[in-house]
Every structure is written in C-alpha cells, then in structure tokens.
C-alpha cells in the first residue's frame, strides 16, 4: 500500500507574531525557526506504524509552500518516510485550505495511494479543512478526528474510531482508498533517528511548481488582520515576581478565594 501524509511547516508557537503595516499579513520574529506542524507528527507516526505492520507499505509526504517549507518534508523523512513531494509556491503568504487541497488532489489522484493521512488542523491557521476537502475532491471516504485506526488484512478497508464530544467515539468502517485526519493522542510521535536525519538532509525532493497544477482561485479572501479584543480586564501585574505574588494574593483574598 502507498500512504501519502500531508504536512505543513508553521512558525514556532512561541515566536513573536505581529501584523504587518498593511494589516493584511504577519511578520514573524526571524529568530525562531519554522517547525513541522505538531498535529502532522501524529499523522506521520500513524503512517509509520502502519508500515511496521505491513512492511511493504511505502510512506510519502507532500507539502504546499515556499522554499522554506521543504523542512517539513525533511523532518517527515527524518522520522522515517520514504520520499517528499514539494508543491512549490512563489510567495510565503496566505494560501487557503481549498487551494492547498486542490493542488494536493491534482498531484495525488493518479498515484495509486491507498490512504492519505493529515493532521486534524495546522497550528497557524487552524482551519481543519485540508483533509476533508481533499477527500471530497478525490471522491474518497473520509473520517476526521481519528484516534484509532486499523487497516484490515486485505488492505481494502480500514476500521477507524473518531473522537467526539462527551468521551464518546464514533466507530466506522471505511473503504480504501480513504482520507483520515488524525487527532492528537492517537500515538506518541517518534523522534527522528540519526540515520534518517542524515538521509533526510541528502534526500532529493520531488519539486513541482504550483502553477503547473493550475490551482483554482481562492474561495474566501483574507481582508484584514486585527489583534483580538480583550474580553476581560486583563490587569497586568507589575514589579518583581515576589511583588506580583503578593499583589495576586491580595486580590484573591479580597475576592475571598483564600
């Protein structure tokens, strides 16, 4: 079976992020590197676990982004994936999930994949759409928020459990090929091994220019970025840590919590 894992590079969560002067995009503190989307690590690990169970399985990774996005593929190869496909876009700005999924579908539809895995969302834009949109574009069945999966021995169907609210799980039986968007907690993603990291550094990535895949127009448009409004007082305590501790104690006592 061939598995494709969709991955993305995102700014480090602790990186300073500010809105640019045009209020239409962001500037990111360059002292923090981009990283592999945390949610994708679970998808990659799940693909590698399937490969351990079915050793003839091939695991490949795909990303859509500018030059720097290759790091997501190298990290994926470092964990153990076989090959990376980079759909290269010119700019580093916003790309909608519909456009991302469309380009991935344009690439993947005729490559004979039996399973496509994605993280449930990306840490940066948090749409949660690429997996399900990709499935619908390919006309494949799909399950999101998957916390357990088991490929049947025949490799024609997959049993999947979706985590839903209230501590319940929805249990499904899907025909392959299918798309699964993977929820966190399904596994413990492995650290890259030294040999895989070295392999990843030297790996030749298949690079495809995005315009050759004829991406569609975006269906929604980012008009403006703003900072969130405070929904509460947001009183910032000042002074040394000890002084702040005393101030907070005073506040909590006055409110009779202590």
């Amino acid at each position: 079976m061939r598995i494709l894992v969709c991955v993305k590079d995102v700014p480090a969560p602790v990186a300073g992020i500010r809105i640019d002067s045009a209020a239409t995009w962001i500037t990111i503190d360059k002292s923090y590197p981009f990283m592999l989307n945390r949610f994708d690590e679970f998808a990659i690990e799940e693909a590698l676990l399937i490969k351990e169970k079915f050793p003839e399985t091939v695991v490949e990774a795909i990303t859509v982004g500018p030059e720097r996005s290759a790091l997501a593929l190298r990290r994926t190869i470092g964990m153990g994936a076989g090959k990376g496909i980079h759909i290269l876009v010119e700019h580093g700005g916003y790309i909608s999930p519909f456009v991302i999924a469309s380009m991935m579908a344009s690439y993947a539809w005729d490559k004979g994949y039996g399973l496509i895995l994605t993280g449930i969302m990306s840490e940066d834009h948090m749409h949660g759409q690429v997996g399900p949109v990709l499935a619908e574009l390919l006309s494949w069945p799909c399950a999101t928020s998957v916390v357990y999966e088991r490929i049947q021995k025949c490799q024609l169907r997959v049993y999947a459990e979706r985590e839903i609210e209230g501590g319940y799980r929805d249990c499904l039986d899907l025909a392959l090929p299918a798309v699964l968007s993977i929820q966190t907690g399904i596994n413990r993603p492995r650290y890259p091994s030294l040999s895989n990291v070295l392999r990843a550094k030297k790996a030749h990535l298949e690079t495809i220019r995005a315009d050759t895949l004829q991406p569609p127009d975006s269906q929604e448009h980012l008009i403006e970025l703003t900072y969130p409004q405070k929904s509460r007082a947001g009183k910032i305590l000042q002074g040394t840590p000890k002084e702040k501790a005393f101030q907070l104690f005073t506040i909590l006592s006055e409110k009779a919590f202590i």
Binding site: P97, A135, S145, E163
Partner: peptide, 23 residues
Amino acid sequence: HTSQGMDFAPRLAVRLGAACITS
C-alpha cells in the same frame, strides 16, 4: 464547529461549490 461540523462542513462546501469558513 464541533467534531461533527468539522467532519462534514468542508466536504459539504466542496459538494455545493461553496467557500468554507471555519471556527
């Protein structure tokens, strides 16, 4: 924007030729 909505809304949007804006 629950596990159910996140599961079908983006796919329904594609089926209907609609944009999908989540959360």
